[in-house]
Computed example of a mutant assay.
Amino acid sequence: MTIADDGAVALGHRVAAVTGGSPRGVPRRLTGGDICDAYRVRLDDGRTVFAKVRDGAPADFFTIEAAGLDLLRATGTVTVPEVLAALPGLLVLGWADPGEATAAQAERLGRQLAALHATPAPRYGTDGPLHLGTLRLTSGATPVDEPADWPVWHATHRLLPLLAMAVDNGGIAPEDARDVTRLCERVEDVAGPPQPPAVIHGDLWSGNILWTADQRPQLIDPSAQGGHPETDLALLDLFGCPHLDRLLAAYQELRPLPHRAPRIPLHQLQHLLAHAVLFGGGYGRRCGETARRALAARP
């Protein structure tokens, strides 16, 4: 048995202990995760579960993720994995067999997202911290729930803190940082009509959609909060999403969003800034370009 196998065996026993059972065989390491290690774990009662581990993670890292999944599930609009255990360094979820990203699944998800975004949230952000990847987000001390206050709240509690981190670690050049700052100063001019806070996934790039064999797409790895629905839609477009045109068409049948295109850069900027913090390089340049596109699209 290799050292890696030995660690997986120990993980299997830990997962079994918190889910009530015994492991069957050695957990299988899964590919695709950048932040956490992921495993498929089989149990002797016939169940298969999904386990995520991250050494050195903050104690609340997975409990916050589990709370986000519970928040999405409570809306009754979207499908998310069942949370079986959320502990320091370990998250155990129900298993779903992956499948092809079909147009039918995309349309179904579009309708589900429209219903999700029709779910009111009490305020923008959350009462506690969130994670965007490994980055910790806060909402500030004062609850904000007025639709007209979202642009300044977003700039103050999302864009500018990430920009400061990117500047500090050299992830963005001064001229690009200057244009992001300029956008934040004029954010009310580019944000469009006020939108009441709604429950959003908060990190809905295409990698956080699990296309399943039973044609019931699941949302995973949320940064769930009260926010602006156009953020979720803009993120689907950021790195490409299968059948996005069908997804958006199904969404807009239930929840039309006229004149959304000019606002897409604003809603993508937070995630590009997070990438500039984590990875630097070309992401800093993309932040500057995105800020300039948002400013150029002002009515």
Rank of each mutant, 00 (worst) to 15 (best):
G280D: 10
E175N: 12
A296V: 02
D6E: 15
F50M: 13
R158V: 00
A85L: 05
L130W: 00
Q225H: 15
D5I: 04
G20I: 05
V144D: 05
F279T: 03
P265Q: 06
F50H: 09
L113D: 04
L113W: 05
V92G: 07
P98F: 04
A59C: 09
R182K: 12
A67T: 02
C184H: 06
T181L: 13
G280K: 05
F50D: 08
P256K: 07
D168K: 12
D237Q: 15
A104Q: 10
L266G: 01
D34F: 13
T119L: 07
A213P: 08
V49R: 02
D127I: 00
D5G: 13
F62T: 01
P98K: 04
R42E: 15
T181G: 14
P122V: 09
Q225W: 08
G227A: 06
H13M: 12
W150A: 10
D70M: 08
P120D: 11
G21V: 07
Q252P: 03
L109F: 03
G12S: 06
L254I: 11
E82Y: 01
P122K: 05
N169A: 14
R24H: 14
A191G: 05
Y283A: 09
R42K: 11
P174D: 14
F50S: 07
W95V: 06
L160M: 14
D60Q: 07
P174Y: 13
V152R: 14
A118T: 01
A16I: 06
P258Q: 11
A118R: 10
D97F: 09
G46P: 02
A294D: 02
G99P: 02
R123N: 08
G282N: 10
L254D: 13
G140M: 10
P27D: 14
V15A: 04
A8D: 13
A118W: 01
G46N: 07
A38N: 10
P265M: 09
L69R: 02
G281S: 13
R54H: 09
A234K: 01
V190M: 10
E188Q: 14
E185W: 06
L272W: 07
L87K: 03
D221E: 06
R54W: 04
W95G: 04
D97T: 13
A86L: 05
R111E: 12
T142N: 11
M165Q: 15
N208Q: 09
R158S: 03
L238T: 00
W153A: 04
L269D: 01
P143T: 14
L278C: 13
D189C: 10
V152I: 12
T31A: 15
G76K: 02
I200C: 06
G110A: 11
V167T: 15
V92A: 08
A173F: 00
L109C: 06
Q195K: 00
R246P: 00
D44F: 11
V18I: 03
L210F: 01
F62H: 01
R182G: 11
A96R: 08
